[in-house]
Amino acid sequence: MTPFVTRILIAGLAGIVMAATIPLPGNAQTTNAVTGIWLTEKGDARIRITTCGAGICGKVIGLREPIDPDTGKPATDNKNPNPALAQRPVVGLNLFNDMRATGPTSWAGRIYNADDGQFYASKVMLQGPARLRVEGCVGALCGGETWSKVGN
């Protein structure tokens, strides 16, 4: 597992997307502002955010270290308690699906934690056209980081 998967998914990510200059939810400009490719704070992974239904989705599209050093093969979702899912690659994993708008530029939903194979409540907020704050809590433990937009 990469440091990205450990750091971000253990905390049960939450994404919060917010900026004063971005239009209200439901507006195509709001959705377009958050869609695209985002680089995690430490540059460990690239996440593509797209629209899905009335919300947004996020999928891992690249890792800085895509090969597991222990196996010499692509990193897998090996902490998933379901044996059928434990062999799927991390690249291609949906971290969050169908997060719903909760404010002008914020969404909430559930996020997947590949470090334990579980889903957690989460939020995301846009802090500007190229900054995405991703935060989450598991019990009393909360954390987050800021992602940078790198493309569409």
Rank of each mutant, 00 (worst) to 15 (best):
L39M: 13
A75E: 07
A140Q: 02
W107M: 14
A86H: 12
V60K: 11
T40K: 00
V138R: 03
P104E: 15
K42F: 09
R64P: 08
K42R: 11
L132Q: 12
T76I: 12
A54V: 06
A28W: 02
E65C: 06
N97F: 11
N152T: 07
R7H: 09
M125V: 14
N32F: 02
R7Y: 06
W147G: 01
A101R: 14
I56R: 08
S148I: 01
E145T: 03
G72P: 09
G26N: 10
G26D: 13
N80Q: 03
M18L: 09
I111D: 04
L24T: 06
G72D: 10
G43W: 00
V138I: 07
M1I: 04
G15R: 03
P81M: 00
G143K: 00
L132V: 08
A140G: 00
I8V: 10
V134S: 15
L63W: 12
V91T: 08
V134W: 07
V134R: 08
P3Y: 03
T31M: 01
A45N: 01
I8K: 09
I61L: 08
K42V: 09
P3G: 05
D77C: 08
R64K: 14
G151N: 01
N113M: 11
T21W: 07
W38P: 01
R48G: 04
R46Q: 12
E41K: 08
M125A: 11
E41H: 02
R88E: 03
G55E: 05
A121M: 13
D44Q: 08
T71H: 08
G136F: 01
M99G: 10
S148N: 13
A33W: 01
A28S: 06
A75D: 07
A108V: 15
M99S: 10
G58M: 04
N78K: 14
T105S: 15
T2N: 10
G151D: 07
Q29N: 08
G109K: 13
A45R: 00
K149G: 05
I56H: 12
A121F: 10
V5C: 12
L126I: 07
R7Q: 12
R88M: 11
P25Y: 02
T105P: 08
V17L: 14
G43Y: 00
F119I: 09
L141H: 05
I61P: 02
S148T: 07
P25W: 03
G12D: 02
T35S: 00
V124Y: 15
E145W: 02
A19Y: 08
I47P: 09
A130Y: 00
L132G: 08
Y112G: 07
T51L: 06
A54Q: 06
N113V: 06
Q127E: 15
N152C: 04
R133L: 15
A28P: 04
L85F: 07
W107V: 13
R133E: 05
C52A: 05
G151F: 05
P81V: 04
K149P: 01
T105W: 13
T35I: 01
D68L: 04
N27R: 12
E135T: 15
G62A: 15
G15Q: 05
C142L: 05
